[in-house]
Nucleic acid binder design. Sequence first.
DNA 1: CTGAAAGCGCTTACAG
DNA 2: CTGAAAGCGCTTACAG
Lengths: 339, 339
Amino acid sequence: MKKKVSIKDIARQLGISISTVSFVVNGKAKEKRISDDLTKKVLQLVEELDYKPDALAKSFRTGKTNIIGFLVADISEPFFSGIARFIDEKASQKGYKIIYSSTKNNKNKAIELLQIFQDRHVDGYIIALPEGLEDEVKALTLNQKPVVLFDRYFPELNTDHVIINNEESTYNATKHLVDNGYKHIGFVTIDTIEQQMLDRLKGYELAIKTEGLQESIIKIPYSNSASSIKEISAYFQKEQQLDAVIFAANYICMDGLRSIQRLDLKIPEDLAVVSFDDFELLEFSSPTITAIAQPLEDIAENIMSILLSRLDDQKSEKGHKQVVLPTVLNVRKSSLAQS
Amino acid sequence: MKKKVSIKDIARQLGISISTVSFVVNGKAKEKRISDDLTKKVLQLVEELDYKPDALAKSFRTGKTNIIGFLVADISEPFFSGIARFIDEKASQKGYKIIYSSTKNNKNKAIELLQIFQDRHVDGYIIALPEGLEDEVKALTLNQKPVVLFDRYFPELNTDHVIINNEESTYNATKHLVDNGYKHIGFVTIDTIEQQMLDRLKGYELAIKTEGLQESIIKIPYSNSASSIKEISAYFQKEQQLDAVIFAANYICMDGLRSIQRLDLKIPEDLAVVSFDDFELLEFSSPTITAIAQPLEDIAENIMSILLSRLDDQKSEKGHKQVVLPTVLNVRKSSLAQS
DNA sequence: CTGAAAGCGCTTACAG
DNA sequence: CTGAAAGCGCTTACAG
């Protein structure tokens, strides 16, 4: 390993001070009125010796790490890993790197992880909020480091966030089922106070009411897949009149599909299906499953553009940016009109 | 934001030197023969003021960042995001964090990313090697920072790595099909020099030879999904005698299944299927698809234990650790014996 | 137009 | 048993 060249080496070889080198390297030559002549000489030597300012020293000195903390429930979930990929792309373009961690929806773990991010002086946070972390996140936002929430948010908390129009999405999905002739549409969600889940429920309820239909809702106390399958199966058996169902999230849909398999129901003849969150599996199951797709790249793009603008100039706009993105309903065979 | 307390604050309040505080905080009180009395006082005040050594200063001083660089083709692929989740878990337990990036199988991008990791002084590397990066990775291993490869490796390169027994896995999968009565087994792979893919092919060839059957192999020049589907479909149409097929990787299997859908072949009646790499989708397609499953957590566990041992004591064993893990064949309906 | 110097918060050889 | 001091590689106010 060849010795790294430092700012001192440059200065010494040119017989000038390190201040001058520092100014030139940081593009402040003009501002500091370094002569063009000297500037050129410095730049040349920098090039020649392949000098790069030591990132650690710089971070230490400036307090800026160029690292962003990314906190989600589980990085291995397709939704989150998809976001992870895109934010890394955008961040890398601007010289930032991402460190991540999974909270597993464990509040204490989340608090701990937030603390670790802070101890490591991340420049900003991207968080899919775990339940019960209101206070910590509020404290964080007061900490002058930018925080962007996504997926989930608190209505009472005035933060930057990027979400989707949950309510409209389920409203449209319900409407789609109605248009295709379904009259007894169920809604499977979890027992939670997570805002995005409540909004999804609201959209369904509104559509049902508008259409003058009867609502049928089950809120599963989510603990694990097995118990959830049991709950959903029982629900289907009890509500024999159902001819269609909407699953309010990815993992609920998985358990729902398993329940349908077990009860040996035919999709869509016995039961039409729409899932919230689209993923590859739904294109491959047979029949293919209609799903509400979140625009991953768009979400990531918005998160990063908010974060980067906050990072660039602290004097950026005071108000909070709250972006609500539209989803797309990918219509497939599971919600076909019955002839 | 309350002012952070520094080592100086502790020293001043106790009227002692910062050296002493540093020694105590770093658990070197005994070694440096600080009196129990003073040690206790320091620890007490540290507790009271909630003093934590500044991570940035420490990193700068010691050159150790407690960050590990994780480089893969695409963090959003289930295999990689699964690994990402587990290595973060293990790393976090030991005070390390992970920064990641996706190479998209682009060599120049990979080189650039490796450079970025280096510039940021990561303490170690976990890499799923892109093709053509032999020299760079070799240079990296000479750099005294630990490097652990996984998924892919170079036989000629003497590195730490964690892989699976690719050859045996496809051998067993082929054998499984033969045992279930299939006689014309095809193998769909990509045109590559990636070692793990070659090993998978080798296992298939060996089994076919051992069983005295006829081999039928297609190596797709992989560029994108659409062209790959075309290639595979053409292959199936040409090789009418096939009664079973093995797809050599996740993404190949996806394209393969689409091809089968298009040609309207019935699984397993027209064509039995086995996939390399198991993922949720395969349990949900109908029929369910038999797959060779990689032990994600086990792989991550091994990666981290090698890396951490290298990180702990530089004097650790000189030889390279090369772990080869077994896979599991998850037998499902797609490879059922035909009655 | 350029330089000398302080200082960010630590660790660690050295001295006593 | 403990302290004074150098130094890691930068940035930046200050001086001239």
